[in-house]
Write a protein that binds this DNA or RNA. Structure first.
Lengths: 234, 234
DNA sequence: AAATTAAACTGCATTTTTTCATTTTTTATG
DNA sequence: CATAAAAAATGAAAAAATGCAGTTTAATTT
């Protein structure tokens, strides 16, 4: 018989950031209700964590890894809404979409996640409004980021779009001027909203101009100021 | 002395939709707290109802009229996030943005609004979770619409973008195949994310092809199926 | 109602982007 | 480790979008 204790433990729940945040607002005993029915899972690069249009049964606390939020439209074209790295709480937006996942979430690197049952969380949050407000702030923060991302892409041309994507990855995902991309050129283009070839051309151009150093998946920002200027003028 | 009773009354609060929705969840006496400090205001076409980056002090219940949500980016370019018509609750998203308005709201037609103080509403909502959930569903619904709008625009070219905008206006704003635009060509282009000339060219083309009948602000959709096909293929 | 201003429209040259065909490089697989 | 498959890169032609200059039309003001 598989009991809670015998389940795979990828990491220790006691040091989990979601627990630490939660226990600022709710009792430890309450959190243990959540913990008991939560499942730790590992996802390999490329696997889907949440599927667009499926019933939203779980929230996901991403403990380790990087994920992309994407939607597929009628014309089978993919659009990446945003990219997020651990630690972060994902899938919350679906709570407000009649319980249907608005978009898919894919592992872009190997991920370790904790799946939290929505009904249990909802029940606890309903009896503790400041906890609820905190969760909502996290959830709407993601919305906000996606919107800001779209705005910045909407009126820019490809130079600006690619600059934006590189700046975003550097600042918000890898926290460094030098990083090894976990996204393919195709995925970059789905994030930037242009053709794959256009991303490749632009990266090569930035490389030649000494703004970036690009060698396959290895990227270094050599002239951040110039990159930001390109992002601003579009 | 200006008392509550002596204030301008644009419409009767007793038949207000926001009151009807609210009183499903909260006591009439509670709602009257909100009502007492709320202000009815009229906005002329073009006036700003909420200003981007200002402190978010009020939620706005739009009783009559049409508004646009817009953001101005660094390069002084405007982007319209979405367009909404009465009745609707607007400005809610700002609650989760450290109390700063994420975007501006402008009257696109003469509007009648009711300004509701956020602190009072928050206080009431905090003591009634199902009321809060309802408000949140309304608020995140707007987020959701903006994102869906952006997604549909992101990978499409101008034919598809303009088709999308016309379909949206027809279905969600004017509820008719024939309508008098309250937006300028420039605003349409800010909504679609392309140049003004391109919108004009495309509208003329659709007119020549018999898909639309365009005469200044007067628009009629003559071939909805073809318009939807254009929207789908992009 | 005339004059002024703003918005809408037109066509064209320039720039940007996409698409396609092909080559090179990297990654995965037996 | 060789081979197949996928991803990345390149160049060029075709398509699309922008920006400009000038015209027409509509809306505002005096």
């Amino acid at each position: 018989m598989i009991t809670y204790e015998s389940r795979l433990k990828l990491y220790n729940c006691d040091t989990c950031l979601f627990k630490i945040i939660s226990c600022k607002y709710i009792q430890q005993s309450e959190f243990e209700k959540l913990q008991k029915q939560s499942t730790q899972l590992r996802f390999r690069k490329g696997e889907s964590i949440l599927k667009q249009n499926a019933t939203a049964t779980h929230l996901v606390f991403l403990q380790k890894g990087i994920v992309k939020f994407s939607v597929e439209d009628e014309s089978e074209r993919n659009q990446i809404l945003t990219i997020t790295r651990a630690p972060s709480l994902i899938g919350g937006a679906n709570i407000f979409n009649q319980g249907i996942n608005m978009f898919s979430v894919f592992a872009v690197e190997d991920c370790e996640c904790c799946l939290i049952e929505i009904p249990t969380l909802k029940e606890i949050a309903l009896s503790n409004t400041s906890y609820m407000l905190t969760l909502l702030e996290i959830i709407t923060g993601m919305f906000k980021n996606s919107i800001l991302n779209f705005i910045s892409l909407a009126h820019k041309q490809v130079n600006g779009k690619v600059a934006d994507v590189i700046i975003y990855l550097s600042k918000s995902i890898y926290n460094s001027n030098t990083f090894t991309l976990s996204l393919s050129r195709k995925e970059l283009s789905e994030f930037a909203g242009c053709s794959t070839e256009n991303v490749i051309h632009t990266l090569t151009k930035f490389h030649k101009e000494g703004i970036l150093s690009v060698s396959g998946k290895q990227i270094e920002i050599r002239d951040f100021d110039r990159l930001e200027k390109i992002s601003k003028v579009g």
